[in-house]
Design a protein around this nucleic acid. Structure first.
Lengths: 122, 122
DNA sequence: CTAAGACCTGACATTGACGTCAGATGCAAG
DNA sequence: CTTGCATCTGACGTCAATGTCAGGTCTTAG
C-alpha cells in the first residue's frame, strides 16, 4: 500500500508518516519512481507509535525503544531494554501525578457543587 | 515577598511567574518602584498552577478554571464550572489511555525478559 | 557612596511534532 | 493524450511555555 492508504488506515497524516521515517521509526520500500510502499503490518506499527507519542514519549525515545518491539525474540541491546523499563516507570509515575491532579479537581468540583446546590433557582 | 523568593519557594523560574501574570493566572501588587510583591498564599497557588500544567492543561484552560479555585464559595459562571468538570473528565480518559500504554509496555518488557532469561551468560 | 545582585520591560530564540505550500513527477481513467 | 489526484523533496510556518539577552532601575551590604 502507498502512503495515503497507510495514513488513512492508521489515522494519521501523510506528513506524520514521512516524519516518522525521517526519525527512524518507520521504514518503507520504494518503487522505482521513488514512491513509498508499506505492508499491512505497518498499520499496527504506526498505531503503536501513536500510542507512545500519546503517552508523552519523544521521537528519540521511541526510536531507542523500538528494537525491543521489532524483535522481542532476540536479545537486544541492554540500553534499549533499560530504556524500555525506564519509560514504563516514568509513565507509572506520571499516571500517579495525573491521578492526584484529578483528585484535586474532584475536590474543587465538590466544593463548587455544594455552593451551587442550595441556590438552585437561577 | 518578591518574585525571586516566590520562584524559589514554588520551584519555578522567575520568567514563568511573569508569564503566568501575563496569562492572567497570577496577580501581584507593585511597589512604588514597580517591583512585584506576593503573599505567602501565592506559593500554593503557583504550585497548583504547575500541577495543572503538568496535567496537560493550557494557560487558557487554567485561566478559565481558576475562578472556581479562587472563590469556590461563590456561584461562579456556569462556563467555568462546566469547563472544570470537562477537564476532569478529559484527565480521566487520558489516565486510562496512559494506563493502557503502560500495560502494553509491560507486555513488551515481559516478552523481552523471557528471551533474556535463558541466555543468562553474557 | 558604591558595587553587586535582584528586578524591570521588551524582544528574540528554542523545541518538537507536525501543517502547509511550492514546484516537479507519477499514475489511473476517460 | 490529458486531466486530475497522489506522491515526491525541501523549506518555511506554527504554537506554547520558557530560556536568554540587552539596557536600564532598585535595593542592600559594606
Amino acid at each position: 500500500m502507498r502512503i495515503g492508504e497507510l495514513a488513512s488506515q492508521a489515522g494519521v497524516s501523510v506528513r506524520s508518516l514521512r516524519y516518522y521515517e525521517e526519525q527512524g521509526l518507520l521504514t518503507s520500500t520504494r518503487s522505482p519512481s521513488g514512491q513509498r510502499h508499506y505492508t499491512e503490518d505497518e498499520v499496527e506499527r504506526v498505531r503503536f507509535i501513536q500510542r507512545l507519542y500519546g503517552a508523552g514519549l519523544s521521537s528519540r525515545t521511541i526510536a531507542e525503544v523500538l528494537p525491543c518491539v521489532d524483535s522481542p525474540s532476540e536479545r537486544n541491546s541492554d540500553e534499549a531494554f533499560e530504556r524500555l523499563v525506564q519509560e514504563r516507570d516514568r509513565m507509572s509515575r506520571h499516571i500517579d501525578e495525573l491521578a492526584q491532579a484529578r483528585d484535586a479537581l474532584d475536590l474543587l468540583i465538590d466544593a463548587n457543587r455544594a455552593h451551587r446546590a442550595h441556590l438552585m433557582p437561577r
